[in-house]
Each structure stands twice: as C-alpha cells, then as structure tokens.
Design a protein around this nucleic acid. Structure first.
Lengths: 213, 213, 213, 213
DNA sequence: TATGAATGAGCATTCATTCAT
DNA sequence: GATGAATGAATGCTCATTCAT
C-alpha cells in the first residue's frame, strides 16, 4: 500500500532516517499547503517547517512535486488504514451505516488534508497523478463492495450500475463536509450532518427504512 | 449580478472597450486555466491568447488574480443566467426534477469551467474569495427555494435544516460529474448519470415516488 | 554567414535592438570567459557587464549556453570577414604567403577570442557544437583552396591528401601563437614568429624557395 | 617527477594507502573528465567511480581542483615516462624521426587525456597551473634537445631561435591529431597522418631529404 | 489607448565541503 | 581511516509588473 513512496528517489541510504525525514516533510507539506496552497509554498519554507535545511530536503526528494506526491500518498495511506477495518461481512444495513459514519468521521478529522489533496492533485506529474487516481478508485471500491454485500444479502435491491454510481455518491456526500465547510460548519455539527446524510443516502438507496440510524 | 466586475480597477474610460477587452481576457483565461491551471499560466500567455499585449492587459486589470476573479465571476454569471429561469412556481416535484436535470446539463456543458473554478478559487485574494462564496451561496439558494416550495405545496416533507443541507447535496451530486469525470465518463452517459442521480435524490428526499423517472 | 544567430530564440521583436543587445552580450561574454572561463562566469555577471539586468539578458537568449554560442559564432564571423578577402586568384606562392601572414595577424589580434573558443567549445549543446565545427571546416577550406590553386598553377606539387592535411597544419601552426603564448610571447615578436613559421611551412610544403618571405 | 603530488595535502598518514587511493581518484577523474568535462563532473561522481565515499575522497584532497591537478600531473607523468626513453644520443635524423613517431603514437594512445588536459588546465589554481606549464616546458625541451643534437652533428642547420620554435611546432603538429580528431580521423589513419607530418616537418626543418621516412 | 522592452525579486535546484559517528 | 547525512551559498532562470514611447 505504501509502495508509492518508493517512486520518490533518495540519495540517503538509512531507511529509518528516510522514513523519519519524510514524515517531517509530509507534516510540513500538509501544514503549508493547506495554508497557502502548493504553488505559493516554497521549498525553503517546507524545509524550514520540517526542521532541516534546503540541502537536506533535496537529499530526500528530487523535485518539489515529490513533496506533494508524498503528501497525497500519505493521506491516502492514513485514510485507508482507518477505513479498511470496516469490511463488509454480513451485508446488513447496519454494517453499511457504520461504514458511512466511520468514513465521515475520518473526513472530519482530516478535512484539511482532503482539501489539499483534491485541490492540488492536478499539479502532480502525470505518473504520480494516475497513481493517485488508482488509490481513489481503491477507496470507492470499499463502498462498492459493501453495497454489493447488501444486495447479495437482499437488504438492498440495486443493479451493477447503481452500485457503482452510488458508491461514488456516498463518497462525494461525505467530502462535502470538507469542501463546503464555509457553508456547512456554521449550521451543522458533524453529528447532525452525518445523521441527515445517512438518512438521505439510505432512502436514496431504497432501503426499507423503519426507524434506522 | 455583474457588479462583481466593478471590483477590478481599470485605467481605461471607455466602458464598451472595457467590456470587450474583458471578454477577451476571460475567454483566454478559461481556456488557459483549464489547460494548465492558474499558477502555470503566465500573464503573457493570457495577453497573447486574448489577442493583445501585456501592456494592454495591465490597462484593464491590476494583478494576475484579477483575471482569475473575472473568470470565476463570468462562469457564475453564465451558470446563473442559464439556471435562474428555472424558478419555483408551483412547488411540484416535476419542477424540482426539471431544475435538477437542467442544472446537471449545465454542468455537463461547462465541466472545464467548474473544475477551474473549484480548483483555483483559493488563489483568489480574500475579498474576491468571499464575493465568490456569496455567489455560491446564491446558487444553492435556488435549490433551497425550490425545495421550500415543494414542502409548502405538500409534495415533500422536510424541515428547515434538511432543506438547507439537501440543497447542498443536490448541488454536490451534480458536480461529481465534473470532478470525478475520470471515473464516471467511461461508464455512464450524462443521461444515464442524470437519471440515476435524480432517482437517488428523489428517494433521498422522501418523495412518494410511484414510477417517475 | 550570420544565420547562426537565428538559432537563438528571442522574445524581443525589434531587430535592431536585438543586434545591439547581442553585441553587448557578446562583448561581455568574451571579456568574462577569457578572464574566468565559461563555467565560472555567472549569467548575472554577463548581464551586469553587458550593462543590463538579468531579466533583460533572458529576453535575448534562452540559456546560458546561448551566450557561449553567440560568442563563438561572432568570433567566427569576425575571423571570416577578415580572412575571406584573401582569396586565391593566381595560385602564386606570394598569395599563399600573404594569406598565411594575414591569418596569423588575425590570430594575434584575437588571441583571447581564439583561446575562449577552443577551450569552451565542448560546453556547447550538441546542435551548436556541430554548427561550430562546420564553421571551422569552412575556415580550413580557405587554405585548402589556396593550396589547390598553387598545385594547379604548378607552384606546389601535392596530392589531395597532402593538401587537405597541410591546410590543417597551417591553421594549427598559427593557433600555436594563441595557445602557447605563455611559452612563445616572451621569446618572439609576432613578426619573428610569423617569419619563422612561414619559412617552415613553405619548406614543409616543398616549395622551391630561393629567398622568399 | 612525481613531486607534484606532494602539493596536495592529505590527512592520511599511510603512504601506500595514499598512493592507492590517489590512483583510484585519478582513474575516476580521467574517465569522468573526458566524458563530461571537469565542471560538469561532481565530487560525488568522482568518489563513486573511484569506489569510495565522498568522505574518504576528502581525506585525500582539499578541494575539487586537487583532483584535476592530480589528473594532469599523472597524465604528464605517463607521457613523460613513455617519451623520455627516446633521448638524443647521436644526433641523427633517424633518431629525430623515431622520437616524433614515438611521440605521435603516444598522443594517439592518450587522445582523451590530451584533450582533457588542454581544455581543463585553466581551471587549475594559479600555483598548480604554473607547475603544469613547467611540465609542458620540460616536454618541449625533449625535442629541443634532439634538434640541438642534430644541429651539433651537422644533420640540421638551425639557429637557437629556430630550434626553440620548431620544437613547439613538432609538438603542436602532433597534438592536432587529438584536437582536430573530428576532421582528421575520418580521412586518415594514424600511420598515414604520421608519415605525412614527419615528411612535412623534416622538409620544414630543412633536412636534406632523399627518400626518408 | 496600445505597445513591448526592461526590471529584479523570487524560486527550484545543485554541489563542494564538513563533521559527528 | 571510512562513512554519508547535513549544510547553505550559489546559480540559472522565470515572470508579474512598470513605464517610456
């Protein structure tokens, strides 16, 4: 899952050190990119924020874009790590609901990271970009799988195309919380937001709702 | 609606000329920003694409950000112009459905513009940013109003908070078509996408669907 | 002859200005390269010496190597301009001797330029390098032609291969004056050097010398 | 002859090790400098090619220029070693001819080294530069001595100034083979080149040629 | 009004050299 | 003695902006 990191070449050999320094860089990157965006952040600022010199920064990356790539990759990793536990087992609606709730709480925790990722993604070099899109695909797949289980178990009645599209919908509805924060956060708590969205989604999926959520 | 343009200072007097030149700049801006993003586009390129010299460009703007602002403003104007016709009159679900369908077709027509707008928005100077967010607010308001009518007419049963949030949802579900094009366009036509989304939304809103599209 | 200059792209349109600025750049380049070599000279120094800003410098060139190329090109042009007058007409030894003498005086006048050219030439990008070598070839051709005339007129008796090689020899013997200046200038005046070399060459070519030079 | 090496300071004591390491550095230096020139070669590359770390490299030199100096010095040593056997004994023309032939074959064997030396020499620090020029002087002296013997023995008739200058000429004519390889190698074999040059030189020196070479 | 040459602050990146281990 | 991570001054190049014509 983390093999993406290996795409970025280093001249340093000590693996542990690489991990440590990259963690510092990523932290600095996230912080600065969310504040001023990728393009307005200089490599010197990244190095300084990371706690080392510009020379050292370039011992661990080849280009500025590498930092962005590392940042995106690490965000995905973290989201993945936190999400993948919620696998589909029995195909119950309860399972679906907890997955959604869990995912939305992750979004809430990592709002800045999400915003950074979706806004700067296009600055990635071609190769890195397709790598990132593949990751995104993998994430959607999680919900697709859960929906599939619910269909299999008879809890939902959706065809292939609906499953695929609505997996994206669930995803997108959550990301709203990060992208439209300027409109939503002043009116809703994350809990209320989640409750309303879960209800909307379940109905949207055609679940025979009695009094769930 | 277009008063936003007045925020950008000019040293030229002739109003007609200003309008013409700005139209040229905006066209160039949209084209270039969608191709390479705001930061990777130079003012020289904008001027060239617009058909005049940088010197002239700077007679009509003060900073490069002004171009971005003008571009965003013009996109909003166009979207607005095309959307606002669909006002709520009787509060029927049909009305809601056509509004959604109409909006989604606008998104389809202006995909690049949407992507540009949402990805570069944060590069706007503070003042322009809040102006843009206000526009965004106004747009959401259109759907809020329609939903409200449907509630008033008894077609839907939603409270204030639901109306507000679900207006955002409808919006976001449509934008998916632009932002997740890499995943959606290869599998769905805009028509199928719209059909599926409309169905999802109507159910999500708790409409007593019998067999409507 | 000067079409080489057109290989270097400019963003300035005024042809006269281009010529003027390039003249300034070339002057600065020759001076600095001869002092500290191409690699130890910075673009900022070139701009400063040329009398304009770094920004302006880059309005007239694309890369630092362009300056080197322009310098080499201009040196060739000047040498050419001064040499080509000495065309072979009757194929007399006198003609050959004056050509040699003339060429050697040019070398003496442009010692620094010669040294710069031969020492930095390999820093040129591939394309420019082959352009320069073609020029060098053209110069050798001048002496080849003269030798040929002398053979035709019966003043010398050389075969094709000898003509070709000895043209290079004449060339090289002159360049010695620039490259081995540290050894030669303290012992010889340019006149004595020329006299001795002319005598050496004439004998070397097998000319029936009576009391020439 | 090798005392030049002592100009380069070391922090290592073991003399044998110093010699070994330097041999490695010089090998790396020659290879890299001939490929990409002194300035385009980094110390890291030199260390890597030499088979040890930059840390170690800097235990044996003080600055990057030291490597260049060591390389030049070693090239001179090798040329010297191979040339000095050809001492003047009897002052016959045959001796002169074999010396020339021998020298030209050395040039042919070490073309790259010659090119490196003459092109990078000016990057040497002052002190090292004059050391190198002294070496060059010593080499010319070899031919001067041979010419002198020939004069003494009556085989040639040259005055002091001619002897001195023509020693340089013989030298330069040979170096042509390395410097103008782009023009010469495609048309001549080293043997033909040598034959033609020897003939030219002998005649140039005024030797009473019958049918030698 | 329109033009485009000039400016220089700013930026990404490199690389010789040092020094703690 | 050997290693290689760290450093930061230096450098090539860009580009938004100005202003004389």
């Amino acid at each position: 899952m983390t093999e993406g990191k290996h795409l970025v070449k280093t001249s340093v050999k000590d693996e542990q050190l690489i991990t440590k320094r990259r963690q510092q860089m990523i932290g600095a990157g996230v912080k600065l990119f969310k504040e001023k965006g990728f393009h307005r952040t200089t490599t010197r600022e990244i190095a300084k924020e990371a706690g080392f010199s510009i020379g050292t920064l370039y011992e661990y990356i080849r280009t500025k874009e590498d930092v962005l790539y590392l940042v995106c990759d690490s965000i995905y990793d973290e989201v993945f790590e936190r999400i993948e536990s919620v696998g589909a087992k029995n195909g119950t609606l309860d399972e679906l609901v907890s997955a959604i709730r869990y995912y939305y709480s992750v979004i809430n925790d990592m709002q800045d990271e999400f915003v950074v990722m979706y806004q700067e993604t296009k600055s990635l070099p071609k190769e890195a970009l397709s790598y990132v899109l593949r990751k995104e695909e993998e994430m959607t797949a999680i919900f697709r799988t859960i929906l599939q289980s619910c269909v299999t178990s008879g809890e939902l009645s959706l065809n292939e195309r609906e499953i695929d599209l609505y997996a994206h919908s669930i995803f997108t509805q959550g990301q709203m919380w990060a992208y439209r924060r300027w409109a939503l956060h002043k009116n809703y708590s994350i809990d209320e937001f989640t409750d309303l969205q879960v209800a909307f989604i379940l109905r949207g999926l055609g679940a025979r709702t009695k009094g769930e959520l």
